[in-house]
Computed example of a mutant assay.
Amino acid sequence: MPILLFISLFTLLDFVLLFTIGGQIGLLTTLLLVLGTGFIGLYLIRKEGVSTFARARQRMQMGEIPSQELLTGAALIFGGALLLAPGFLSDALGIACLIPNARQLLMKALTWAGLKTATAKQHTYQSGSSGWEQNTQRDYSNTQNGPIEGEFISGDDTPRRR
């Protein structure tokens, strides 16, 4: 619910800002600015997207997971969507998602705000008198990249013929 409230307030503030500035500088100038930021955004998305894809492919060829490149790609998509929306506030945030140094500052700000930390709980199942019972006890929000342990039991133990 808080994210829906934030999106609603952001959209309302964006339109109020658009109409306020548009009333001061005129309709034609406002339209040119909104369209201009859209074209600049398309150029930056293409430029940054191609380089991000090349880095991701290079890391995959080296056998690494391109996690940073995936976050960059998500920021590019988010920035592009913001640039498609009419408004100066959404355009400013969209361009910030497309410029590499500004994007890194945004990611640091999100990390600082605590939006990056997700709480993951261990799910274990124990056999009890009433069947399988779920037990969620441990919090893994501060763990490093350690091993993941688990068991797998196939539900179908009948041999198959070919």
Results as ranks from 00 to 15, higher is better:
Arg162Tyr: 14
Gln122Phe: 05
Gly131Trp: 03
Phe6Cys: 08
Asp91Val: 01
Thr29Tyr: 10
Gln122Ile: 10
Gly22Lys: 06
Arg162Lys: 12
Thr143Met: 12
Arg103Asp: 00
Gln144Asn: 11
Arg55Val: 10
Arg57Leu: 13
Asp14Cys: 07
Gln144Glu: 04
Leu76Asp: 05
Leu115Lys: 04
Gly49Tyr: 06
Ser130Pro: 03
Phe15Gly: 06
Ser127Phe: 06
Ser90Met: 06
Ala56Pro: 07
Leu33Tyr: 13
Ser51Pro: 05
Leu82Cys: 13
Thr158Met: 09
Asn142Phe: 08
Arg59Val: 05
Leu5Ala: 14
Ala113Met: 13
Gln126Leu: 01
Tyr140Met: 11
Thr52Gln: 00
Asp139Gly: 00
Lys121Ala: 01
Ala81Thr: 12
Val34Asp: 05
Val16Tyr: 14
Ile7Phe: 03
Thr111Asn: 01
Leu82Ile: 10
Val50Pro: 02
Met60Tyr: 01
Gln137Gly: 10
Thr124Gly: 05
Glu48Asn: 04
Ala81Gln: 00
Phe53Tyr: 09
Lys47Ser: 01
Arg103Val: 00
Gly155Cys: 07
Leu110Ala: 12
Glu64Trp: 04
Ile3Gly: 07
Ser67Trp: 12
Leu44Pro: 00
Asp157Gln: 12
Ala74Asp: 06
Pro100Gln: 11
Lys116Leu: 03
Phe88Tyr: 15
Arg46Asn: 06
Gly79Val: 01
Ser127Asn: 05
Gly49Trp: 03
Leu71Arg: 10
Gly128Asn: 10
Arg103Pro: 04
Val34Gln: 04
Leu4Lys: 08
Gly63Asp: 00
Leu42Gln: 08
Arg138Ile: 12
Pro86Gly: 02
Pro66Asn: 02
Ile7Ser: 15
Thr124Gln: 11
Gly49Asp: 04
Leu4Arg: 12
Leu98Phe: 05
Tyr140Phe: 15
Lys121Glu: 03
Gly128Thr: 15
Ile21Val: 15
Tyr43Thr: 07
Ala92Ile: 13
Thr37Ser: 04
Gly80His: 03
Glu151Pro: 01
Cys97Lys: 03
Gln68Lys: 14
Leu106Ile: 15
Thr117Pro: 03
Phe78Trp: 09
Met62His: 14
Gln104Gly: 03
